[in-house]
Amino acid sequence: MRNPAEKKSFLDFFSFAGTALHEAAHLKGNSHVSLMVIMRQILFTGYEALPLISFIALAIGGLVIMQGYSLLSTFGQGNLVHMILVTVIINELSAIITALVVVARSGTAIATELGNMVVNREVDLLKSYGLSPISYLVVSRIYGVMIAMLILTIYFNIIAVFGGWLFSQIFSSIEFRSFMGDFFMELKLGSIVMMLLKPLVFGLLISLVSSYEGMSVSHATTEVPQRTIKAVVNSITLVVISDILITWIFWMLK
């Protein structure tokens, strides 16, 4: 017998994503999107993830500086460490590490919560009010996760750069203002645009995939963990693929 959890096809995801994006784009005329759900999502995905993001960002910033400095100083190029900080953290690591944290915390939570809502017929209840579950549950989460991802990524960068300066004190005593001045010299417009674009795309993908997997639960509670695992795996896969694509597009535009 076929597992009901396996019945959904890849095309179903595109149909779901199309509906969700259409409803998200018509936010003004959509009274079913709940501001309360958006705020709760930002609070959970963004605010409550701050301690973990702070710890990782501080550590990554420090490690990149330590590795970069020890490598570059062997060639007498220790002053280029800022370039590594921009290239590695601002362009790449900040968005992808933040995305992994958001997948681990919020992606799993969204898939589990929506899956349980389907099993407990709470989604049917919304339908009985004439409410679109996609508008009420999914669109709010898309906005919440995208906004939270953007804020968290900017925060990650700030803390990582600060961590980089903190760890750079081990090798040479650099004044903070001078360190930041050199850093901003290396920071190009392309890096800033990429830093802002990536979290929005990743947030959209994570919320869409997690919501789709949660809403795909049909009857049994045993499907919920199966769908949550799928949400994590598929979210990470799509985040990595989109990261490569965005980086490649920016590299081509250079």
Binding site: N116, M117, N120, R121, E122, D124, L125, L126, S128
Partner: peptide
């Protein structure tokens, strides 16, 4: 609903 469903949260 037979079970009288409500939103848990």
């Amino acid at each position: 609903f037979a079970h009288g469903i409500m939103l848990a949260n």
